[in-house]
Amino acid sequence: MKRFPLCALIICSLLFVFTHDSDADSKSPKWAATSVEKAGPDFQIQGEYSGVLGEDSNEPLKYGVQVIALGDGAFQAVGYPGGLPGDGWDQKEKVSAKGEKTGNVISFTSEQGRGDLEDGKITIFDADGNQVGTIKKVHRKSPTLGKKAPANAKVLFDSNRAEETVKNFTNGKITNEGLLKEGVTSKQKFKDGHLHLEFQLPFMPQARGQGRSNSGCYVLGRYEVQILDSFGLEGKDNECGGIYKVGAPSVNMCFPPLAWQTYDIDFQAAKYDKEGNKTDKAKITVKHNGVTIHDNREIDGPTPGGTNKDETIAGPLFLQNHSNPVRFRNIWVIEK
Score class of each variant (00 low, 15 high):
M1Q: 10
M1D: 05
F4N: 12
C7H: 15
L9C: 11
I10V: 06
C12N: 15
L14I: 14
L14Y: 10
F16D: 13
H20P: 09
D21G: 15
K27L: 14
W31A: 14
A39E: 07
D42W: 00
E48A: 08
Y49N: 00
G51I: 14
V52G: 01
V52K: 00
N58R: 12
E59K: 12
L61V: 00
D72M: 14
A74D: 10
A77V: 06
V78G: 01
Y80V: 05
G83T: 00
Q91A: 06
K92Y: 05
E93H: 11
K98M: 14
T102M: 12
S107R: 13
F108P: 06
T109K: 13
S110V: 06
E111W: 05
D116S: 11
L117I: 13
L117M: 14
L117S: 09
I122L: 12
F125E: 04
F125I: 06
D128S: 13
D128R: 13
G133F: 00
K136M: 00
K136E: 00
K137F: 00
H139C: 13
S142H: 05
L145N: 01
K148F: 02
P150S: 05
A151R: 07
N152D: 15
L156R: 05
L156D: 02
S159A: 10
R161G: 05
R161I: 04
A162P: 02
E163Q: 15
V166T: 12
K167Q: 14
N168F: 07
G172F: 09
G172Y: 06
K173M: 07
N176W: 03
E177Q: 14
G178E: 02
L179I: 04
E182N: 14
G183N: 03
V184G: 00
K187S: 01
K187V: 02
F190T: 10
F190D: 11
D192F: 05
H194I: 15
H194P: 02
H196W: 09
E198T: 08
G209L: 15
G211Q: 03
G211C: 05
G216T: 12
Y223N: 12
Y223Q: 12
Q226H: 03
I227R: 06
S230D: 03
F231C: 09
G232N: 03
E234W: 06
G235Y: 00
C240Q: 12
G247P: 03
G247W: 00
P249N: 03
P257N: 05
P257L: 05
L258F: 01
A259E: 15
Q261D: 01
Q261T: 09
T262Y: 02
T262I: 10
D264I: 11
D273V: 04
K274I: 04
K278T: 07
T279K: 15
A282H: 10
K283S: 13
K287Q: 08
K287W: 08
G290K: 08
R297I: 06
E298Q: 15
D300Q: 11
P302A: 11
P302D: 04
T303F: 00
P304N: 02
P304H: 04
G305T: 05
G305W: 03
N308L: 13
D310Y: 04
T312Q: 12
P316L: 08
P316N: 03
F318A: 14
H322S: 10
S323Q: 14
V326C: 09
R329N: 13
I331H: 01
